[in-house]
């Protein structure tokens, strides 16, 4: 039982990272009905920035600076590469974001260099004992960060004018425009938010040890998460993120007992298997809105 609960604890940590990433995807999707494949690159950019900043200022100052910088980067990318394409097929825009991903990732990756880097987080491999269960401090921190960021986002959408504008334009873009909502600002804000979220997620994905250029692959697990939660559901993204994180950790822990013949860790494919199972039953995810097809 302890092993199970420890796996759940670890899964909640990874799941929080997934949830943060998934929130970014969903925010962009709600704004412009596009899945942005550039999120992994923004995540990597955030990690690299923190790893450099943490050397000069401390970790706690480095994170907000990096998050702001990546948000600005995302803003610039939206302005240069995405805005001209608004109105074109969503698939085309999605592929442009793939191109952005490749470019940003190779530039950020170049700064990682040959020797392993670290984000200089204060947690390392330390554990904290929660009710008899050993839980890595970094996982607790990720969970707390996710709850705080999620809360802030909720407040942002609920209480600020631009948050209201974003909700309105997600509901019906044309109606929102008619009411005086500046859709361009909505697009820009959604990209900046998504970039910042990716950076935060990156920091927590990178804690606990040295990192290399391949860490961006973590962000791909957010894709099945958003499909599972429903592309346009923020709450769904959080729940699905945590769910997938926990299932993944539990599978990694018990795989050797359940199916001893499998040598490779099945953790990385669990999100996709869960996603496919759910899609067979609910084609729009657990909390997604069914798309109405107008003929």
């Amino acid at each position: 039982m302890t092993a199970f609960l420890e796996a759940v604890g670890e899964g909640l940590g990874t799941g929080s990272v997934y949830a943060l990433l998934a929130l970014g995807f969903v925010i962009i999707y709600k704004a412009m009905q596009v899945i942005s494949f550039a999120q992994p690159a923004f995540m990597l950019a955030g990690i690299v920035l923190v790893s450099y900043l943490a050397e000069s200022v401390n970790f706690w100052a480095a994170v907000p600076i990096a998050v702001a910088a990546v948000a600005l980067l995302a803003l610039a990318v939206e302005r240069v590469a995405i805005r001209p394409m608004v109105g074109k097929a969503v698939f085309v825009i999605a592929i442009i974001t793939l191109g952005v991903d490749v470019v940003v990732r190779v530039v950020a990756g170049a700064f990682i260099g040959v020797d392993p880097r670290s984000v200089g987080d204060p947690w390392g491999q330390e554990v904290v004992n929660v009710a008899g269960i050993d839980m890595a401090q970094r996982n607790v921190a990720a969970l707390i960060a996710m709850v705080v960021v999620g809360g802030l986002l909720f407040a942002f959408f609920r209480f600020t004018p631009i948050g209201l504008a974003m909700r309105a334009s997600a509901l019906d873009q044309e109606a929102a425009m008619a009411q005086g909502v500046n859709v361009g600002t909505v697009f820009a804000t959604s990209w900046a938010l998504a970039g910042g979220l990716a950076a935060v997620a990156g920091v927590f994905a990178a804690t606990g040890g040295p990192i290399d250029q391949n860490i961006w692959i973590v962000a791909l697990a957010a894709l099945p998460v958003i499909i599972l939660g429903g592309l346009d559901s923020l709450g769904g993204a959080v729940l699905a993120g945590l769910l997938i994180g926990v299932v993944q950790a539990v599978v990694a822990t018990y795989q050797r007992d359940w199916v001893p013949s499998l040598e490779t860790n099945a953790g990385p494919i669990v999100p996709y298997l869960v996603m496919m199972l759910v899609l067979l039953v609910r084609p729009y995810g657990l909390f997604g809105t069914k798309e109405v097809e107008r003929v």
């Binding site: 392993p116 822990t253 040598e263």
Partner: peptide, 18 residues
């Protein structure tokens, strides 16, 4: 026999458990 894979602490957690 506990197969591992390239990667830092994250990837080795299940190895340590095994």
């Amino acid at each position: 026999d506990v197969p591992s894979e390239p990667g830092a602490a994250d990837k080795q957690a299940s190895v340590v458990a095994g």
